[in-house]
Design a protein around this nucleic acid. Structure first.
Length: 771
DNA sequence: CTTGTTAGCGCC
DNA sequence: AAAGGGCGCTAACAAG
């Protein structure tokens, strides 16, 4: 009876839900196929009267009727004409869909509204309902009761063993609260719905008060931006999460074995070598940076505080796998202690890299410096072997061109062995040390692949019933990019780093294929457009290898070589041709092109000559000269960047292509370092944020394309400038062409940029082979 | 035994 | 003094 009441009333008023969910660990699990609803509430403003003057409905799903009661509400959830506002729509929708209810009528997500209003609340309390409703800058409503956290209402101090209250505050399970603290619990969860609607009204009015400017002219208000872009985008993201990616678990189990075996070999190789200098190193945790720091740099001074030094030797606890019974103990304990001292007693290795806290770094980079550019392969038993390995070290020589001076000094004159070579005595000893440390590096990188990717991808908590992985896709970055969580599918190893071909585990279902489509140099194209830079626009217009063209524009001697046809900018082999008639620029001037490429990527991020000098191991003056060469042909970029810095200083904000705003703290009263950070963010955000705008528009185009839908193609994932879809193999080619078209003309079927948007797309059975 | 923090590293 | 933008995740460690 009262279900009908709601149904009729809410057609006119926006309504709100807040769900309490059990049987799910929110921090670990995906809500897709996990989690059960214990209760929910509906609020549609103070005017509604559900009887006895009550304006809010609270529904007990736990003891009040369970699934059958929830299903009574299905028509209500599924009615698109009932406009619904949520706080974190994604979670609630997945949980409702676990009951087979298809939610419709998505009107707004207050988390996204808040993010659109102010994208930098991370340091101001974040975007929880509690933080937002409690913030007067967001909800200036004095009559409003903000959300109060569960911890404050229901938190109980954990009792210590002696019966007194401890410091740890625990919250009982929601089922227990609902049954045993019924009244406050109903108030609490009903308030969620009321807070959400209040928050919606506040944010809507704020966004209505802010002008939306696109390309310099007024398009409306920012709430219009939300409705045009982020509302449909929010819905698309939830659908993508629900789809999920199919993962080949058998394949992952296979590469896990291989990786573990290779890791053991590398780790033991290092341990065996290290134990020659420090016996306990045989049992060390080679993955612990503290232990490594002790072995290499024991006794070293802190670079920031000369009064602090690492101890000469230090004890570490390790799992007692050998079941050693230590002195004074009766049985083998779970852990035992080993003592590590500096490997070299008489010699010290000068640390080149320090951590932020001033201690010598034992990071991968630092270890690579110690080892040098060599392989981990080394025969520790038969030293005659080493000569063969020796022949392989060093860089490949660059193609030399007669009559043309090759710019940089070739690095192959330097020794390929790292800084550990000399301290360990040079010669065979030095080589042995470098190879052992190289093995350590390899062990670390395998470990990182295993623990970050291969193992978690096989976990059951992140996959649904159908074996697919459902990450959550969030609009929660300061620039407007997406982020992915549980698991983060946006940082899967790519290309040459993917030594176990992890991406091969992301597959299409039988009968299906994946389409992987990505933009070529999206951010650089955006920069060319925003800065209106002629040289860059011309280079994109001409097409071909952008970095080679940059190198040519930077260095007159390269331009001369190109003009005289001594080198080719790029080469498209004709049938029958095997190699180009003259060398390619990227081979003949590899080091210049490398620098040009690095500058192309770094300058948009605001990298300074100081940073480049460090990377390139040249003087700051020299780095600055190279940077100037880059800007020489691209003075519009410099001017545009200066304008952005001024804008950040004057208005405390910058804008993206579609008119989203990122605010910065006032530049008064900030340290020079903070000022630098703001300035770099100010020149980066319009580029990164506009690229995010483009990618979002492309996804909206793809998602609303009727033909793609008809053919059965669905978006699965976005990785900033790349999208992945899955659909029937037989329509792969047709779908691919549509996707490319959507991405090239992402603004309502048009491209409003001054540059073309180049798109590369492939159809394949797995993610790896689509690259 | 839990929690938070740091360093490090994967992606674009 | 700090000198590359934006993320999320992990192990190890430190602290409660």
């Amino acid at each position: 009876m009262w279900v009908h009441l709601v149904y009729e009333l809410v057609e006119v008023i926006v309504s709100i839900y807040a769900f309490q969910v059990s049987n799910i660990d929110v921090k670990q699990e995906t809500p897709v196929d996990h989690g059960e609803i214990t209760c929910f509430s509906i609020y549609c403003g103070p005017e509604a009267n559900f009887g006895n003057g009550k304006s809010c409905i609270w529904v007990d799903v736990l003891d009040g009727g369970g699934k059958s009661l929830l299903v009574e509400f299905a028509p209500f959830f599924e009615d698109p004409s009932i406009k619904k506002v949520w706080h974190n729509y994604s979670f609630d929708r997945h949980v409702i869909e676990n009951y087979g209810i298809k939610v419709s009528g998505f009107h707004a997500d207050t988390m996204h509204l808040a993010r659109l209003w102010d994208s930098s609340r991370r340091t101001k309390g974040g975007y929880s309902l509690e933080a937002l409703t409690g913030d007067l800058a967001v909800c200036g409503d004095k009559n409003m009761v903000g959300k109060v956290s569960m911890k404050n209402i229901f938190g109980r101090r954990k009792l210590k063993k002696d019966g007194s209250e401890g410091k740890i505050i625990t919250i009982p399970p929601v089922e227990e609260l609902q049954r045993e603290e019924r009244k406050p619990w109903i108030c609490y969860s009903a308030l969620d719905a009321m807070s959400t609607l209040k928050l919606y009204e506040n944010l809507k009015s704020k966004l209505s008060g802010r002008e939306w400017k696109l390309d310099g002219s007024t398009k409306g208000r920012m709430i219009d931006f939300y409705e045009k872009y982020w509302r449909p985008f929010g819905e698309i993201l939830v659908e993508m999460e629900a789809e999920g990616m199919l993962v080949d678990r058998a394949y992952l189990a296979e590469i896990e074995k291989v990786a573990q075996a290779e890791q053991q070999v590398a780790a033991n190789r290092f341990r065996r070598w290290a134990s020659k200098y420090c016996p306990d190193a045989k049992y060390m945790n080679v993955g612990s940076d503290a232990q490594l720091r002790q072995l290499f740099f024991g006794g070293a001074q802190n670079s920031k505080d000369p009064n602090e030094s690492l101890p000469d030797e230090r004890d570490f606890k390790i799992p007692n796998v050998e079941k050693v019974i230590e002195e004074g103990k009766k049985t083998a304990t779970k852990f035992r202690t080993i003592r590590l001292h500096r490997l070299l007693c008489d010699t010290r290795i000068d640390p080149e890299i320090y951590t932020a806290s001033g201690w010598p770094s034992a990071s991968g980079d630092a270890l690579k410096t110690l080892a040098g550019k060599i392989s981990a392969e080394f025969s520790f038993t038969d030293e005659s072997d080493s000569l063969q390995t020796d022949a392989n070290v060093g860089n490949l020589p660059e193609t030399k061109l007669p009559g043309v001076e090759v710019g940089a000094v070739s690095e192959c004159t330097k020794s390929a062995y790292g800084t550990a070579y000399a301290p360990f005595g040079g010669g065979e000893k030095g080589k042995e040390a470098c190879h052992a440390i190289a093995a350590l590096c390899e062990m670390c990188s395998i470990d990182s692949l295993l623990s970050n990717f291969i193992l978690p991808l096989q976990g059951s908590h992140i996959s649904g019933k159908n074996g697919r992985i459902h990450c959550s896709l969030n609009i929660n970055t300061e620039t407007g990019r997406l982020s992915a969580r549980r698991p983060n599918l946006q940082n899967q190893p790519a290309l040459e780093k993917d030594r176990y071909k992890i991406r091969q585990a992301f597959i299409a279902a039988p009968g299906n294929s994946l389409i992987v489509a990505d933009y070529g140099q999206l951010e650089l194209r955006i920069l060319a457009h925003l800065a209106n830079c002629k040289s860059m626009l011309d280079a994109f217009e001409a097409g071909g290898d952008f970095h080679s063209r940059t190198a040519m524009n930077m260095y007159p001697h390269i331009r001369k070589a190109v003009d005289q046809k001594l080198v080719l900018l790029e080469w498209h082999p004709q049938p029958g041709e095997e190699k180009p008639p003259v060398p390619l620029l990227k081979d003949a001037f590899a080091s210049e092109r490398r620098k040009a490429k690095m500058l192309n990527f770094s300058i948009a991020y605001g990298k300074t000559p100081v940073g480049l000098a460090r990377d390139w191991k040249v003087s700051v003056k020299e780095a600055k000269e190279t940077v100037d060469l880059w800007y020489n042909e691209r003075h519009e970029v410099r001017k545009w960047q200066e304008e952005r810095k001024k804008e950040a200083q004057k208005d405390s904000c910058v804008h993206t292509l579609l008119g989203r705003v990122r605010h910065f703290p006032s530049m008064k009263n900030v340290t020079p370092y903070q000022k630098g950070h703001i300035e770099r963010a100010a020149i980066n955000t319009p580029v990164q944020g506009s690229a995010a705008d483009v990618a979002m528009c492309a996804m909206i185009e793809i998602s609303k394309n009727a033909r793609l839908k008809e053919l059965g193609w669905r978006l699965l994932l976005q990785v900033h400038d790349e999208v992945i879809l899955e659909g029937p193999t037989e329509s792969g080619e047709e779908a691919k062409a549509i996707v490319v078209d959507c991405m090239s003309k992402p603004f309502d079927g048009k491209n409003i940029l001054q540059v073309d948007l180049s798109v590369d797309a492939k159809c394949a059975q797995n993610w790896y082979s689509a690259k």
